[in-house]
Amino acid sequence: MESEALKEFVLLRVPEAEISQGAQYVQAVVPSEKAHTLLSELKSNPQTSFDYLFCLTGVDWPQHMEVVYHLKSTSLNHMVVIKAKINTRENPETDTVCDIWRTAEFHEREVFDLFGITFRNHPDLRRLLLTDDWVGYPLRKDYVDNVNMIAY
């Protein structure tokens, strides 16, 4: 599907989506509540059929948090970036996409571990890289660790 058609496809499902202009891929910021529906639609709709989630990560912005999904369709060979915007930095929550792409299970655990974003309905949400008793979420911008981090 062409970029324009993709943008329309997303805007049709989520009218309030912000489409970035001039980005590398088609890129849409959607509210986190609507992300799961949109993403499963993107996967299952034969017009889009984004069956390959090649990157899932979180971003910590000053006012909000984002979960970024990089999607590719192996059959149609197009790509899209969906950003689920969570409007809070205190106990951010969003829906898991484990049920759509199984690779998300590990990636979401990593995001939970490093950003503290909770994924609802995730089958096994535990810390992945850090020890279970670790305090804080290192990839957040306000994370301070006087022992392990060298301040610049």
């Binding site: 990157c55 990089h70 690779t103 299970e105 590990f106």
Partner: peptide, 16 residues
């Protein structure tokens, strides 16, 4: 960079 993410192949491969 403000945020830099490495999508490493081993991470996804291990999940399978």
């Amino acid at each position: 960079p403000y945020r830099l993410k490495f999508r490493s192949p081993g991470f996804s491969n291990l999940s399978a």
